[in-house]
Each structure stands twice: as structure tokens, then as C-alpha cells.
Design a protein around this nucleic acid. Structure first.
Length: 428
DNA sequence: TCTGGGGTCCTAGGACCC
DNA sequence: TCTGGGGTCCTAGGACCC
């Protein structure tokens, strides 16, 4: 078997690049995209990075810099980003079907069996094509392991002279070692904020030192992942391309509220809305859930922070929005306290079984008639909402209050996914 | 009274990712 | 005043079994 060749295609400042597609006037200007509720910064243009705005920066702490430096802010328009992401995946899939869509802005390709004699030229062609067809700039890292491909793509972003591509296949020796030595340990994929200080305390400060660690020692320090990292840095692939999209194991919908609230109506409306979204996703995946849970918490940045949670197992797996809302609200009422100001809440579903094989419970007590009715009810609801717009039909609980709804005042139009938000062109 | 070894399953919490 | 959301996997420890 041929040894694998991984290419990581990583979009540059993805959310900002998506906003600039429809706002070319923002080229060269500092731009940030904010999280849900406009709470913190989740994407920055190079100009914004140069101003010292870190990833995850709380917006309120940086407001003065935004104002003084003319930073353009956007509320996250995740519908737009998802659509652009799918277009890029389509382009890459036309290059090779051996693709792993790793996240909204990154994909791994396996080039091992493609007839490519110049990887660098290949990378540049792909990067040019995405730029030309979609309009999003990407960085391409090519290497014998995913971990090295990640490092290569990161290097591309730091060094414009590389012109979008770094190929580490058959690069060895002194210059490679020197480069690994200049890579701080925390920049290695899989070394997070907890492990980095631990490794440094052991005298391991950079990627080269990590690559020279004894595998047993790496495992002691970082678990099985550490051992694999050492191998990957040495060009020995441990993380294969994961091609077929695996069924999700859990679905969660959580939000920080627009304002803290104790009001039962608003809280139940929020939970009903989260449950509706999670259940819709569950049905889209043709799955049923055997377990559901709910949590709520106060503001973790204030004294007296508390969080509560409950979960329930269903005797018969379900994807019925109405049943799930009922269960979730019952669970919530077990700990709801009218004197608590809730700041955040969420719903999750897990323990899935395929909707195509409804499992009967041990006593065979599945009410087949009721299950069929539930299925028909959900199909009708989904098809009406697909045709006339989401929330055309909804559960009344969702309308009990809206204090929970996050703010997104600086959101750009959903140009490509809503008819009434299409860009308008005027000619005169 | 003393007190093994190995296995499975489940869960909670930790760590990491984008 | 104001600090996101959605995931996965690993590990340790407890319960239980032979």
C-alpha cells in the first residue's frame, strides 16, 4: 500500500472572508465576526489580528479599540458561512472523492493514489480554483501525516512568500528540524492549554523536542494521543482520513440568553425552541434518540455561579418534537427556581438508533399505531415548514416569551439562503 | 479470617478541536 | 452592563461478575 499523502485545505479567516465576498469594500480593512449574542470575537481579518485582537476576545473589553481603529464588526451569519462552506466542499470533491470535511473551514484530502508529480503546483492550482470560483482565499499544507499538514498550513498563513502552499513531502534534514524547533509546543495540533504548560515543565518547549520524546513518556504525559503525536511528527501516519460522514453521536442546542431571566415562560420558550431545532436535525439524520437532557446555568463570570442538569431515558427511542419538548420541560421544572436569574440553557439528545429500525422495548410494549402517527405528524410538520419557511408550524410553548433570544444586530443579510435578503443591484 | 485476578460496562469529568 | 456554540474521544473509578 502506498503511504498516504495528506493535503489540508484551510480557509483563511473564513467567516471574515465570507463577509468580504459581498462587501469587497472591506478588503484591507480590519474586520471581526462575533459569536452568537455578539459576545466575543470568533474570526478576525489579518488587519484585526495586527491590532492585537485575540481569538475569543470579549467584545466589551475591545470596544474602545474597535472604535478607535475603525474595526468593522459583524454578528455571526452562520447560515451564510455554511452555504459557502458547502460550495468549497463541492469544488474539492470534484478534485478527489477522498475527502474528509474536518470542519466548516477545513478539509483533508488524501492524494496518495493520485498521479501528481509536483505537489506544490497541484496545491496552487486548487487554491487558485477556489479563489476564482468561490472567492475565498485558502492555505494548503501537504505532508505525510495530518499533524504535519496542519503545521504546514499554519506556516503558509504566516509566510506570504510561500504563496498559499507548503509541501513537506520528502522534506528532511536540517532545515526541517530547524523549522520544527521554531514551532512552539502549543501550536501543535492536539496540544491544548492544559498540556502545553505540563510539557514545558518537562522541558519540552517546541515541536522538535516533542518529536524526539520517547513514545512511552509521551503517553504518560498526554495519554494515547501523546504517543500518536510523536509518531505523526516523525512522518508516521496514525490518524487516517475519515471519509464517510459518521453518524453523529449527540446533538446539542444551547444559547446564552439576550438577557438573564427568571421568567418561566421565557425559559420554557427557549427550551422548546432548542428542542425543536435539535429534533429537526435528528430527523434529518434519520435517527431516533433514547436519551434527552437539559441544563441551565447562571452567569459564570459572576459570583455564585451555579449550573443544573437533568436527563431522561426513553423506553422507546423518539424523534417527536412534541414528546421531546414535554420531557425536556418536565426535567427543567424539577430544578427550576423562580429566584434564580438564568443566563444560559441548553438541550441535548443522545444514544441514537436508526429511524429505519424502530427497536421494541423488552416487553414489546411499543404502541405501533402511536409510533406511526408520530412519524406522520413529524413528516407533515417538516414538509410544511420546508415549503413555507421554518417555524410556519411550531409548538405554542415557543411563543411563551422571547427575553431569551440573543441579539445579532450587526448581522449581514443571508444573501444566498433567504429570498428576501438577496443582494440588490441598482442600475441607473 | 483473610482477602485474587481479570473482565465488562457505565458514567463523569477532562481535554481537545474548530 | 457586556466573556460562544457544537462536537469527539480518552481515562479513571465504581459496580458487578466469574
Amino acid at each position: 500500500m502506498k503511504s498516504p499523502v495528506f493535503a489540508l485545505i484551510d480557509c483563511n479567516n473564513f467567516f471574515v472572508s465570507c463577509e468580504r465576498l459581498f462587501r469587497p469594500d472591506l478588503e484591507g480593512k480590519p474586520v471581526v465576526v462575533m459569536s452568537s449574542g455578539d459576545g466575543c470575537v470568533v474570526a478576525r481579518s489579518n488587519e484585526a489580528k495586527a491590532l492585537g485582537i485575540p481569538m475569543g476576545a470579549p467584545v466589551f473589553k475591545y470596544r474602545h479599540i474597535f472604535k478607535a481603529q475603525g474595526v468593522v464588526q459583524f454578528s455571526g451569519n452562520f447560515e451564510l458561512y455554511g452555504d459557502i462552506s458547502r460550495r468549497i466542499t463541492d469544488v474539492l470533491t470534484s478534485v478527489t472523492p477522498k475527502i474528509e470535511v474536518y470542519s466548516v473551514d477545513e478539509s483533508f484530502l488524501d492524494l496518495g493514489e493520485l498521479a501528481i508529480d509536483d505537489y506544490e503546483a497541484w496545491g496552487r492550482t486548487v487554491s487558485d480554483k477556489i479563489w476564482q470560483w468561490i472567492g475565498v482565499p485558502v492555505s494548503v499544507g501537504i505532508a505525510p501525516t495530518k499533524t504535519l499538514a496542519k503545521l504546514a498550513a499554519d506556516q503558509v498563513k504566516k509566510d506570504p512568500d510561500l504563496n498559499s502552499v507548503l509541501n513537506l513531502i520528502s522534506v528532511k534534514g536540517l532545515s526541517f528540524h530547524t523549522w520544527l524547533r521554531t514551532t512552539p509546543i502549543q501550536d501543535v495540533w492536539g496540544v491544548g492549554w492544559r498540556s502545553a504548560p505540563k510539557m514545558k515543565a518537562e522541558g519540552i518547549h517546541n515541536a522538535l523536542q516533542l518529536s524526539q520524546l520517547r513514545p512511552q513518556r509521551a503517553q504518560q504525559l498526554m495519554g494515547i494521543h501523546g504517543r500518536q503525536l510523536v509518531a505523526e511528527l516523525n512522518g508516521l501516519s496514525c490518524y487516517p482520513l475519515e471519509r464517510e460522514e459518521r453518524a453523529q453521536k449527540s446533538i446539542a442546542r444551547t444559547r446564552t440568553f439576550g438577557e438573564d431571566t427568571s421568567e418561566l415562560g421565557s425559559l420554557e420558550a427557549a427550551l422548546a425552541s432548542f428542542t425543536t431545532k435539535a429534533a429537526f436535525r435528528l430527523r434529518a439524520d434519520r435517527q431516533l434518540a433514547k436519551r434527552a437532557g437539559v441544563f441551565a446555568s447562571t452567569n459564570k463570570h459572576k459570583p455564585g455561579y451555579r449550573t443544573w442538569q437533568r436527563e431522561v431515558c426513553f423506553p422507546v427511542a423518539t424523534a417527536d418534537t412534541g414528546k421531546l419538548i414535554g420531557s425536556v420541560i418536565d426535567l427543567f421544572r424539577e430544578f427550576y427556581n423562580p429566584h434564580v436569574k438564568y443566563h444560559r440553557a441548553g438541550v441535548w439528545l443522545q444514544d441514537f438508533v436508526s429511524a429505519d429500525y424502530l427497536q421494541t422495548d423488552v416487553f414489546g410494549a411499543v404502541n405501533v399505531v402511536e409510533e406511526d402517527r408520530s412519524k406522520a405528524r413529524m413528516q407533515t410538520l417538516d414538509s410544511i415548514n420546508e415549503r413555507f419557511g421554518r417555524s410556519t408550524i411550531r409548538y405554542a410553548t415557543e411563543d411563551l416569551g422571547n427575553a431569551w433570544q440573543p441579539k445579532h444586530q450587526l448581522r449581514s443579510p443571508r444573501y444566498v439562503t433567504r429570498w428576501n435578503e438577496l443582494p440588490v443591484v441598482r442600475s441607473s
